[in-house]
């Protein structure tokens, strides 16, 4: 039960075997196929086919109106020599690295302190979780408002403490960290609660034994809690990496990729090339790059999962 869901798909269990009594009838044999057909059709038409189409388009030059011209790998070669693209990649990876680090470390500590089943802790968990269920549209706007450099709440509070105002979204060196902050803030509650529910499954006798040995709190954390929840840590790492690479809403609503391209990330760049510059082939090539990144992370995750993690 404690393995991650993605793993469960690979583990064959025999409980599902069902022997039909009147076997051999064609109708009975077809039944499972008709039952899965609608879902499989949805996945094929709206997920797999678009992937194929995207790969196909990445070999063409196309501006939506004129004819498609086959240009082989030229889009990819152009990407390699495009300084803006490398900046976008740099932004995306920086965003991913910082967001994943903070989205794991802060919730880990919060979960460790809030895991006891008290009323206050339950209330705090609910509070932390609230942003997670609110639309990114509202969240982007409310933070954009609070981060306003002239009339924003945050700069006013800084002013109260005698600090000079910060251009949270207008200073090229601060804007990306500001967006990262918003994403981390939104996800903290979710990650914390997943960690807590994973910590709840750790057998109590391990903590009792540590108690008998007068183990320090941080020793308990690093020697018992952390190793026991490592599958969850790996799972959330993958989920956060994927969610970091697909960031779009905050960028589109709060900064439009600016200032000076400092918050332009992969999905937003694809969106711009596709819907504003109509360079479909080029945008598709970027989509393929994004797919490669996510694919590599997923494969690494499964390989790590099958090797290093503590199993129960």
């Amino acid at each position: 039960m404690e393995t991650n869901y993605a793993l469960n798909g690979r583990v064959r269990t025999s409980a599902a075997v069902s022997k039909k009594s009147g076997a051999g009838k064609a109708g009975a044999k077809l039944l499972p196929y008709t039952m899965v057909a609608p879902s499989i059709a949805v996945f094929c038409v709206f997920i797999l086919y678009p992937i194929g189409y995207m790969i196909y388009l990445s070999f063409f030059h196309w501006n939506l109106i004129g004819p498609k011209t086959f240009i082989g790998l030229e889009n990819y070669l152009d990407l390699l020599h495009d300084a803006d693209f490398w900046q976008v990649m740099g932004n995306s990876f920086l965003y991913m690295f910082l967001m994943v680090s903070f989205s794991l470390m802060i919730p880990l500590l919060l979960a460790f302190t809030l895991k006891q089943d008290t009323r206050l802790n339950k209330f705090l968990q609910g509070v932390l979780f609230t942003p997670y269920i609110v639309s990114l549209v509202s969240i982007s706007y409310v933070w954009m408002w609070m981060m306003d450099s002239d009339y924003g709440l945050i700069n006013y509070l800084l002013h109260l403490f005698g600090m000079s105002p910060v251009g949270w979204l207008s200073d090229p060196s601060v804007a990306l960290p500001s967006l990262i902050f918003v994403s981390v803030w939104k996800g903290i509650g979710y990650n914390t609660i997943i960690f807590i529910s994973s910590m709840e499954t750790i057998p109590q006798y391990l903590y009792e034994a540590a108690n008998l040995d007068h183990a320090k709190k941080h020793t308990v954390f690093f020697r018992i809690t952390l190793p026991m929840i490592s599958p969850t840590i790996f799972f959330l790492t993958l989920m956060n990496i994927i969610s970091a690479f697909k960031v779009f809403e905050t960028v589109n609503l709060m900064t439009q990729g600016g200032p000076m391209n400092s918050t332009n990330t992969l999905v937003y760049d694809i969106y711009q090339y596709g819907f504003q510059f109509y360079k479909i082939g080029y945008a598709s090539a970027m989509g393929v790059v994004l797919m490669g990144i996510i694919g590599i992370c997923t494969v690494l995750y499964f390989r790590a999962l099958s090797r290093r993690i503590h199993y129960r």
């Binding site: 798909g9 879902s39 994927i242 690479f245 697909k246 479909i280």
Partner: peptide
């Protein structure tokens, strides 16, 4: 195949889907 589609975010395939 079903599980694989879970790893594919909308943000990756929106352009071809729009064109489709």
């Amino acid at each position: 195949l079903t599980l694989t589609t879970m790893m594919i975010p909308a943000q990756m395939i929106f352009l071809p889907l729009f064109l489709m």
